[in-house]
Simulated scan of single mutants.
Amino acid sequence: MKVTLDNPASAPQPLSPYYSQVARVEQADGSALLFVSGQIAEGATLAEQSRGVFETLDALLRAHGGSLADVVNIRTYLTDISRLGEYGAVRREFLTGTPPTSMTFEVPRLFRPEAQIEVEVVAALPAG
């Protein structure tokens, strides 16, 4: 098993030097698991922030040969759980296949005070 930590140049860079955005875990059969750090995005509304988050997640996955279609687990942190429907509508725009496993949490605040949402994912890439 080989583990690579990465901040792909083709994706938005991390907001802090204290973490890597992607951990790629190579499996013996040539497949890989991608663990993507929580992402936030700029925007005035929850929908704008959600779209930005999924665009960044997609860029990070694509930098490693994957896509949002490869997501098998998603964890969402919202500062207002009553707005879950707004987030869900945007999420369905980006995750169009069979839904991945999922957990959603309400939190009092996130890394940046203006952030309303943070999302992290795990993706499974086939061999090849």
Results as ranks from 00 to 15, higher is better:
residue 62 R to H: 07
residue 117 I to L: 07
residue 46 L to F: 00
residue 72 V to R: 15
residue 12 P to Y: 14
residue 56 T to C: 15
residue 10 S to Y: 06
residue 17 P to H: 13
residue 46 L to W: 00
residue 26 E to S: 06
residue 86 E to L: 00
residue 43 G to A: 11
residue 70 D to E: 08
residue 82 S to L: 07
residue 97 G to Y: 11
residue 4 T to R: 15
residue 39 Q to I: 15
residue 105 F to D: 07
residue 66 G to L: 01
residue 88 G to Q: 10
residue 5 L to I: 01
residue 35 F to M: 12
residue 9 A to H: 08
residue 71 V to Q: 04
residue 8 P to G: 15
residue 92 R to A: 12
residue 72 V to N: 11
residue 43 G to V: 03
residue 126 P to A: 10
residue 119 V to K: 02
residue 109 R to E: 14
residue 65 G to K: 03
residue 45 T to I: 06
residue 35 F to Y: 04
residue 34 L to G: 12
residue 41 A to S: 13
residue 104 T to H: 05
residue 109 R to K: 12
residue 33 L to A: 12
residue 119 V to E: 03
residue 50 S to V: 02
residue 16 S to F: 14
residue 40 I to W: 06
residue 60 L to M: 15
residue 110 L to P: 02
residue 121 V to N: 04
residue 127 A to R: 02
residue 128 G to E: 14
residue 98 T to Y: 14
residue 115 A to G: 08
residue 98 T to R: 14
residue 127 A to L: 02
residue 77 Y to S: 10
residue 82 S to N: 07
residue 90 V to S: 03
residue 31 S to P: 03
residue 30 G to P: 02
residue 29 D to F: 04
residue 102 S to L: 11
residue 11 A to D: 02
residue 78 L to W: 00
residue 18 Y to R: 08
residue 37 S to L: 03
residue 108 P to A: 05
residue 97 G to D: 09
residue 105 F to T: 05
residue 41 A to E: 06
residue 87 Y to T: 01
residue 60 L to D: 02
residue 25 V to E: 09
residue 55 E to R: 04
residue 16 S to D: 13
residue 38 G to Y: 01
residue 31 S to W: 08
residue 81 I to D: 09
residue 98 T to F: 15
residue 128 G to W: 05
residue 102 S to A: 15
residue 94 F to H: 13
residue 11 A to G: 12
residue 120 E to S: 14
residue 58 D to P: 00
residue 110 L to V: 11
residue 5 L to C: 01
residue 28 A to I: 08
residue 39 Q to D: 04
residue 54 F to R: 00
residue 14 P to K: 05
residue 2 K to H: 09
residue 127 A to H: 01
residue 58 D to L: 04
residue 126 P to Y: 00
residue 91 R to T: 03
residue 115 A to M: 05
residue 43 G to K: 01
residue 110 L to K: 06
residue 88 G to E: 13
residue 69 A to W: 02
residue 69 A to R: 10
residue 103 M to F: 07
residue 13 Q to S: 09
residue 79 T to Y: 00
residue 100 P to T: 12
residue 8 P to N: 10
residue 30 G to K: 03
residue 103 M to T: 08
residue 72 V to L: 11
residue 20 S to L: 14
residue 2 K to S: 10
residue 88 G to K: 02
residue 97 G to R: 06
residue 18 Y to M: 14
residue 32 A to F: 03
residue 47 A to S: 05
residue 45 T to V: 08
residue 54 F to M: 08
residue 90 V to A: 11
residue 90 V to L: 05
residue 62 R to V: 08
residue 1 M to H: 06
